[in-house]
Amino acid sequence: MSETENNIIRIRDLHFSRGHTKIFDGIDVDIPQGKITAIMGPSGTGKTTLLKLIGGQLKPQQGSIYFHNDNIPALNTKKLYAARKKMGMLFQTGALLTDMSVFDNIAFPLREHTDLPQVMIRDLVLMKLHAVGLRGARDLMPSQLSGGMARRAALARAIALDPEMILYDEPFTGQDPISMGVLVQLIRSINSALDITSIIVSHDIQETLEIADKIYIISQGKVIGHGTPDEINQSDSPWISQFVQGKADGPVPFHYPAPSYKDDMLAG
């Protein structure tokens, strides 16, 4: 009982399809408060779509997504925007605004949503930048940053308004080992220092298993397994073991659906 009360996000019976493609076919997900939860799965399973559904950028055909006590899909624009102020999102590309400097990017949400004096904004921005180690890069433009730095700057922006929850969209993809290590370190320290709930969407198994408290594995529109990293590692489900161990063939077939090889060759 106490476990359900501590869930910041409760997703029930979520259905979402794009055109005729079913992306989610009735999934239930609970995100515990103050923990790092990872959502994993092969590419193309709609992990990013799930983040967009939580952020209210997409509307599901069916089902509910509770953030505290608000059902996100049912909120009007004003309440949705109020809920979003409590969320931060780190996009895969960083999504920094290209026409302003790093400093102005971090200051942007503060300037948009608060009436703080410039001096205070400056202090806050420098604090956030210091936390991600980019205080010296404040005057650079986003185009001058490396991919890893852009992601760190975007992380500083995501925590600018001190959100209760941060959504990470593929934070480790395409990073060199050093910046990967930096990001793992940052996500962990931000989570514990600021007592933030983190949701990580990823398919980088090692890094994710390393920092996550709870893991959901999604494939073909269903949750095929969830639990702590240890439980996932020791799972005997063929799906999970194929994914965790990265086997080429298994329940997720190597071949895209096709007529039998022999028939196809003879048909020519």
Binding site: Q57, R84, A95, L96, L97, T98
Partner: peptide, 22 residues
């Protein structure tokens, strides 16, 4: 278009800033 392609518009929405307005 580039702001859309590089998720800047989505980013604005997630920062509770309406891209139509901004």
């Amino acid at each position: 278009g580039l702001m859309k392609a590089t998720e800047q518009l989505s980013g604005l929405e997630m920062m509770a800033v309406n891209p139509v307005e901004r």
